[in-house]
């Protein structure tokens, strides 16, 4: 019957945790969530991944910190954040009231630092859904990315964190490596429930008049639609080797992009740079995704995961 309504099931699973839909917002691009409450009904989002939090507050890198590039942007924020104490005292209470599932993103320069942040949150009572571990930030001189480029370090860090939480544990991977699947396997084999990919790609641009880099620290992280094919390829490669779910990130601006990531092997996605242009885009993408699946008579989002039909 034309126009018949099928009820689309958008829910998805990561580890033992179910989410109402697969559209999350990415760390560093949605603040702590409530900043955009005036512009969008954040409770509709699959989940909010909050800005990377470190043990101590960080003021970040000197400006200029961002520049727009063709189809993207380069940033070198340097993990400016309020630190775990204030995250717990000022931000968690607001997040709990927001109605959306939320995931805390943690960064650190030593594995002890990651651990201490996680332990502080585990020590309190909170309905946080889980942790995303940022081992892939290109914008700090110490730590951060060093974990994400070494399978051994990733293995050790994942193992230590796993022992201290029952909650969803996601390792966020860097594309700035020779073989992303080696890092992904290290995370999986040491207890991660999921991996997310990708963080930003190392990028650089130069003002040819002043002959200075556009970013104070010269190199930064490239994000936005320009990196989507790299994100898709990373998810695809991971999906072929890993059995745990993958969260696809990189350049998503539409429901079509969500489907593309899903076909490549993602069980959920995160929207980053597109939030800056339209903080409500996540909500629109969820609605579009529902209509698209309805129109194609697909009643379960999860039935699309990894369904890409390769030539060989």
């Amino acid at each position: 019957m034309p126009g018949s309504l099928i009820l689309v099931d958008l829910s998805t699973n990561l580890g033992r945790r179910q989410f109402a839909n697969p559209v999350f917002v990415a760390s560093g691009t949605f603040g702590y969530g409530f900043e955009v409450e005036r512009l969008a009904d954040i409770s509709k989002l699959g989940a909010i991944v909050t800005k990377s939090v470190t043990l101590e507050p960080r003021t970040g890198n000197p400006p200029p910190r961002i520049v727009e590039t063709t189809g993207g942007m380069i940033n070198s924020i340097g993990l400016a954040n309020v630190g775990v104490e204030r995250y717990i005292s000022d931000y968690l209470p607001q997040l709990q009231g927001g109605g959306a599932d939320f995931i805390m993103n943690i960064a650190g320069s030593t594995s002890d630092e990651y651990l201490k942040v996680l332990e502080k949150v585990e020590a309190i009572s909170t309905d946080i859904a889980g942790y995303e571990i940022n081992i892939s930030c290109p914008n700090v001189s110490e730590g951060g990315m060093e974990f994400g480029v070494s399978a051994d370090q990733t293995a050790r860090l994942t193992r230590r964190l796993r022992k201290r939480t029952e909650r969803l544990l996601i390792m966020k991977l860097s594309p700035n490596v020779t073989d992303i699947t080696a890092i992904g396997l290290a995370a999986q084999d040491n207890g991660a429930d999921a991996v997310s990919a990708i963080n930003t790609l190392v990028g650089m641009s130069i003002d040819i008049n002043s002959q200075r880099p556009d970013i104070y620290r010269t190199l930064g992280g490239l994000s936005g639609p320009a990196i989507k094919p790299v994100g898709i390829a990373s998810v695809y490669k991971l999906a072929r080797k890993l059995s745990i779910p993958i969260i696809g990130i990189g350049g998503i601006t539409s429901a079509e992009d969500v489907i593309e990531y899903t076909l490549a092997g993602a069980s959920a996605v995160q929207i980053g740079t597109a939030n800056f242009r339209d903080p409500a885009c996540g909500i629109n993408i969820i609605n579009d995704l529902r209509s698209r699946l309805e129109d194609s008579n697909i009643d379960r989002y999860q039935s699309l995961i990894g369904q890409v039909k390769t030539y060989q």
């Binding site: 949605f30 800005k51 000197p62 400006p63 961002i66 903080p279």
Partner: peptide
């Protein structure tokens, strides 16, 4: 330069020499 305009991205930071108790 701005990305979000809402205080989220931290991209529009400028140096404020310790004023308002923060370097940026």
């Amino acid at each position: 330069y701005m990305a979000c305009g809402l205080g989220i991205c931290q991209g529009c930071a400028i140096k404020t020499d310790g004023a308002r108790n923060k370097p940026f």
